[in-house]
Design a protein around this nucleic acid. Structure first.
Lengths: 337, 337
DNA sequence: TTGAAAGCGGTACCAC
DNA sequence: GTGGTACCGCTTTCAA
């Protein structure tokens, strides 16, 4: 069964295609009688205006391109959910692409979609791209009138809308919280020291220490490569043995789980002897034992916000370039005393 | 900067648009000299044939529509990764939509995309749809020449390609494995007894018991509603107290984590007194303590397979309706003795 | 109130 | 080797 077109309907009623088009769009030019019968027929036969014809005509696809490093991390899946939801509400579709942390893949995807497939992009940087600090492919898109909204891992030097987590304050507040609940030897475990957001979290940690009057001790900071995820525990055990530590802030969940395990293996009880708080987005935190207190990031809200800002821009409801900060919340569970 | 079109190039060199079109497509009709200069100019100015014009002309969008219940479960994220990868390799884009387990949302999405936006669908049923067993919206799409490939949660009664996990054998083999490693009181915890795949897993469990000569005991089977996920542990504690159980197979990760916790709270050691094996897709299993032995599902492979089968169908490389079974693997970790 | 025709950006057939 | 033109499905202006 071939799809019904305006032409078919026109033939059916022996009228012109313009009459049908106007009738379907409820134009005042067309008589009630004609409109009614055409609309009825269209509905009954499940007529749908062809997407590509419309997009061609309108020079607008009502489609958003998403480029994210992975869908396997809960945070990104959450953001995606938010984007998809907000987009659909406003009649937009979402083409989702995975960069796999690769610069080349990112470039390819932009190329592929820069042919009128999409009206705008929502992007979080691939690790490689962030290290390279090469944003030509994005600048290109922007120059071609394709707006970009970046979230979480954003290109500092690129002039586009941005949604970021309040990483600095998140870390700072957490240090203060730990201090208030009786911790004096607060360690910082980072698996993203190369990333801008990793640096912000570290700076927030330092500032937090300063605020409560604890002297910064670089021995209590450890940077681990994310790709060494299998060795987290074996790296953290000596770290805990060789230093006096009563609490740990980590930049992610896996490192927090490993910290708790390392703590237990070095004879500490969580949270009695060791409190652990990750920046996190939920899934492991809620299933570990004990369940973890987290610096929660509101991924879904980030996604919704990104979509709204992009669509506002596409529909000219907003012309300025804005950077929106989404605050973090400390969600208290059982890994802190 | 407006996007370059064939017309612009034609004007630039004072030739006709057909000449440009042919030159860009490297037609033998055009002189080398002309081809060269036009191709060079196009490349330098980043010319890209307009997607919507092409789709309109070719009646093919090279785009796949995905409808899945959620992206927050690791399994679905894995499948998505596989689809996206395989699709991109063959020059296809992917529009991803979330049904949120809702029948109405599923219908809406199909409606939205059935206007020439996509060439075919890859779908995993929303829970509501599976309960309703109402597949009209899918049948509609198929009747309109839009092929559908279903995976994991498939519509039994719908005539379309399907990719399924070998749930029955996965459970059966696991029972046999547990028996061989010295377990006699094997329990079955299901959080998807309403789903077809849940039933298959249960039947496989029963068959496995039969194979090794253990009499089926319905007291060792418990069905929990997934929405009661917060109560898993409190439901499982009496289950473990009131029955003699030395091992548990669960249909999902969360229930397995809860089983281990319940086991510990009732004085059992994992895996010494209690072995736990979930059907699973990895993330919690690898971070729990102890790490869990799993019946692994190969989500990414499922996704790749689904994409390939759909694209083969779209490109007429395959006309038959096929059902492909992806086998499970028992991945041994530390939750079994 | 209805219809003809141009145009969105391409491709491809047919003339020249 | 190059150009004219119809067509993909739809909207919109202008004329009837």
């Amino acid at each position: 069964m071939k799809k019904l077109t305006i032409k078919d309907i026109a033939k059916q009623f022996s009228v012109s295609i313009s009459t049908v088009s106007k009738a379907l769009n409820d134009s005042y030019e067309i008589s009630e009688a004609t409109k009614e019968k055409i609309q009825k027929y269209a509905k009954e036969n499940n007529y749908k205006p062809n997407f590509n014809a419309l997009s061609l005509k309108n020079r607008s696809t009502k489609t958003i391109g998403i480029i994210i490093p992975t869908m396997l991390k809960y945070f990104f899946a959450q953001v995606f959910k938010g984007i998809e939801k907000a987009a659909l509400e406003r009649g937009y579709k979402v083409i989702a692409c995975i960069s796999n942390e690769s610069y080349n893949k990112e470039v390819e995807i932009i190329e592929m979609l820069s042919n009128g497939s999409i009206d705008g992009f929502i992007i979080s940087l691939a690790k490689e791209t962030e290290l390279k600090q090469n944003f030509k492919h994005f600048q290109n898109a922007i120059d071609n009138d394709t707006p970009i909204v970046m979230f979480d891992r954003v290109a500092q030097t690129l002039n586009c809308d941005k949604i970021i987590t309040d990483d600095f304050n998140g870390a700072q507040n957490t240090v203060e919280y730990l201090y208030k609940t009786g911790h004096k030897n607060i360690a910082f475990v980072s698996t993203m020291s190369d990333f801008h957001i990793g640096k912000q979290r570290f700076l927030g940690y330092k500032k937090g220490l300063e605020n409560v009057g604890i002297k910064f001790n670089e021995n209590l900071v450890i940077n681990i490569l994310e790709r060494d995820y299998k060795k987290y525990e074996s790296i953290l055990i000596p770290f805990l043995q060789n230093n006096k530590i009563d609490s740990i802030i980590t930049t992610g969940e896996s490192a927090a789980v490993a910290s708790m395990k390392a703590g237990i293996k070095t004879g500490k009880e969580v949270p009695k002897d060791l409190s652990v708080i990750p920046f996190s987005n939920g899934i492991l935190a809620r299933h570990s034992s004990p369940k973890m207190t987290t610096i929660s990031q509101h991924g879904e809200l980030m996604g919704e916000t990104a979509a709204k800002i992009l669509i506002d821009k596409l529909e000219k409801k907003n012309k300025d370039t804005i950077t929106k900060v989404i605050t973090t919340d400390l969600v208290i569970r059982d890994s802190t005393k």
